[in-house]
Structure formats: C-alpha cells, structure tokens
C-alpha cells in the first residue's frame, strides 16, 4: 500500500520534458462562460496549492490546473487525476485573492467527462458518485446499505482480499445499530421523475 503514505511534494514539471506546449486561446473564454469560473484572473500566487490538503495525491497542483486551462491544454487537464482527487474542501477558493472557484472548475470538468461517458483515471470515484445519484433518483434519499453493497459488487470489494475486513466492519456496524435495513424514500415522487428523466444530449448542458 505505497500510495497510503504522502509522498514528498515535488511539483510536476510543466510542460513535460521534450514536449513543446502549444497554447490554444479559445478554451479559456469558453470554459469561463460555461462554468462561471473566472480562471483568467489567476496570477499564479499558489496560495491554493499551499493550502490544498491533497496535493500529495495529485498529478497537477491546483494552480497548474488553472494555468493549463489558461493555455488551453484541455487534454492534459481532463486526463489528470487532480480533477477527481479534489475533495471540494474549499480551502483554495477561500484563500484565493482573486476568488477563482477551483472546486467549481473541478466539478465542471468532472461533469463534462462524465457526460462524454469515457473512461476516466479515477474510475472508482466516479462509480461511487454514479451509484449514489442512482439511489437518489430512485428514492429521493440515500440508502447506505444498498449503495455500499452495489459499489462493492462492482469493484470486487465483496470478493477480493478486502472482503473479510469489509464483512467484519459491516457486522460490527449492524451490531452497533448503525445499519439501516430498510430504505426510506420521499413520499412525493413527481419531482424525482421530472428531475432525473433522461434528457436528450446526456446530463451535461
């Protein structure tokens, strides 16, 4: 489990060695208009990245993600783990002197990638979000038992090496009265159907 330990935080080089970077001007304005995030206002002070608790697990530091957007490097941005690793703790936005809403930018990118239905780097994170939303669409509330069960079935947690530990934890939670056995749902359901019905062109506007 080497990835459980924070690694020394060496900032990745930009651009990658041996590769020239070809700025693409159109993206910045397009993303700003669609996401509402004023990424052009970033002047690279790196307060976001100094405060970010998860840089040890990121392939791009937050300020680098913004810089890549300014330079129109969408491919590198969209294929980064950073987009999925961001935990939306809002430290970066809180401390940004120019109020660049990085968590919103990360969400905007996730939604765009999700809408395209392509493979993403952190597929387990996406799967968890997807199953969570499915449950909400079905009942209007989350049923933790079902969510965990279906996630583990899809990722091997129900059979793999962690199966025993997962089962033991599940039993302990049951014994402690912290597992709910029957799901709750909202009585009113019209809004649910209207909100989650399939829309043409996928979920991304």
């Amino acid at each position: 489990m080497s990835r459980t330990q924070p690694q020394p935080e060496a900032a990745p080089a930009l651009p990658p060695p041996g590769e020239a970077l070809r700025p693409e001007g159109r993206w910045l304005a397009e993303v700003e208009a669609s996401s509402g995030v004023k990424a052009g206002a970033c002047y690279g002070c790196k307060k976001c990245s100094n405060g970010c608790p998860l840089t040890f697990a990121m392939d791009l530091h937050p300020y680098q993600a913004v810089r890549l957007l300014q330079l129109g490097q969408m491919e590198r941005l969209e294929s980064s783990a950073t987009v999925w690793i961001c935990a939306s703790c809002q430290t970066c936005l809180t401390r940004c002197p120019n109020q660049v809403d990085l968590p919103r930018l990360m969400d905007w990118l996730k939604e765009r990638l999700h809408g395209r239905g392509e493979e993403v780097g952190e597929k387990d994170i996406r799967l968890f979000h997807e199953l969570f939303l499915k449950g909400v669409a079905k009942r209007g509330r989350v049923f933790e038992g079902e969510l965990m069960g279906s996630y583990m079935l899809r990722t091997g947690g129900a059979f793999g090496p962690e199966a025993m530990a997962n089962a033991r934890l599940g039993l302990t939670m049951l014994r402690k009265g912290r597992l709910k056995l029957l799901p709750a749902r909202t009585r009113e359901s019209r809004w649910r159907r209207a909100l989650f019905k399939k829309r043409r062109g996928g979920s991304h506007a």
């Binding site: 939306s88 969400d107 996730k110 999700h114 979000h129 939303l133 009113e188 809004w191 979920s203 506007a205």
Partner: peptide
Amino acid sequence: EDWNCCGATAAHSLDHRAALNLAAR
C-alpha cells in the same frame, strides 16, 4: 416534512442541475 437527500458530493460532482434542484426542494 418529506425532505430529500441534499445530493452530497455526488450531485455537485456529476450533475450541477440536480445538485441545485435537490437543495432547492
């Protein structure tokens, strides 16, 4: 009365419109 899930991280990550609507209700 009859509250619903806030959408949590999942909604604001994958579906901004759903996140707003779930909270709005």
